[in-house]
């Protein structure tokens, strides 16, 4: 279980990935007035356009609840999709350091997750404001949303490691992930909801892991903790276990050699 031990060591000694992460955010938003809040503004713009279209074409009764639901989904989607996309380039800019010093590459996987998590939490004030505007109520179940988010992050950590290793070896992975991310956006109930589609399509959603990630975070925030939530929770646990087992193989045969492929 060296793989798990090394991951825990990276998490317990976060100095290197926190350093990189803070520098990356500072560089990305250098000389901008709003810093990481630009990301929130971009999301608000997208949500506004989608909400307006929804309002004009469908004229719904539950408009404020729709905006709230859409916001949670979009913010979480951006968090997930950016991590997946950036996993393909995690090691690209690290050759300077990796060619001089033996550094566990899991540090850079943690950096990717942490950087995007910081950007993601900048959007939480918007979610809180929209929560109080919506018809949903403060309930104890809301806390399950954070439990769900924790499980989503564990899954993303494992998936990001998988993509990072493979994309360092195979240059095609970057394009595959890029296209998959586009496809998953439309295949996941982010701008549409489950009850808008046929039962057959609803049944297919069980095979979409991103759908389960979104259910884990979104449903408790919408006072909706039922069998579907626990089903998604179990599927995400199973997914984490499967990716963990695959990663054990990557760790054993590829990780130490990956610097030769950069």
């Amino acid at each position: 279980m060296n793989y798990l031990r090394e991951f825990l060591k990276c998490i317990n000694k976060p100095e290197i990935w926190i350093f990189y992460s803070h520098k990356r955010i500072a560089l990305k938003y250098r000389d901008t007035i709003l810093g990481p809040f630009w990301n929130v503004i971009n999301s608000i713009f997208l949500i506004s356009v989608l909400s307006l279209s929804y309002f004009l074409f469908l004229n719904p009764d539950d408009f404020k609840n729709f905006i709230y639901r859409l916001s949670i989904s979009i913010f979480l989607w951006l968090f997930i999709s950016t991590i997946l996309r950036e996993s393909t380039s995690t090691l690209k800019n690290k050759l300077e350091i990796l060619s001089e010093k033996k550094i566990d590459i899991k540090n850079f996987v943690c950096e990717n997750i942490y950087t995007n998590f910081i950007i993601f939490i900048h959007s939480l004030p918007i979610v809180i404001i929209l929560f109080f505007i919506s018809d949903f109520k403060l309930q104890f179940n809301l806390i399950l949303s954070f439990v769900g988010l924790f499980l989503v992050i564990i899954n993303l950590l494992l998936i990001s490691y998988f993509i990072t290793i493979l994309s360092a070896m195979y240059k095609d992975i970057e394009k595959i992930v890029e296209n998959l991310v586009y496809a998953i956006f439309f295949a996941t109930p982010i701008i549409w909801s489950e009850n808008m589609v046929s039962e057959k399509i609803q049944n297919l959603l069980i095979f979409n892991p991103i759908y389960h990630f979104i259910v884990l975070f979104r449903d408790p925030l919408m006072n909706n903790v039922d069998g579907k939530f626990y089903e998604s929770f179990s599927i995400c646990l199973l997914l984490a276990l499967i990716v963990f087992i695959i990663n054990l193989k990557l760790f054993k045969y590829l990780e130490k050699r990956i610097v030769l492929y950069l």
Binding site: E15, I16, F19, L27, I97, S99
Partner: peptide, 22 residues
């Protein structure tokens, strides 16, 4: 490799700190 930690966008101070952290 004398490029060590010398990411072109980092300042000199940041490069020193990164190297010592590593």
């Amino acid at each position: 490799d004398f490029r060590f930690g010398l990411s072109k966008d980092f300042t000199g101070n940041e490069c020193i700190e990164l190297r010592l952290i590593a």
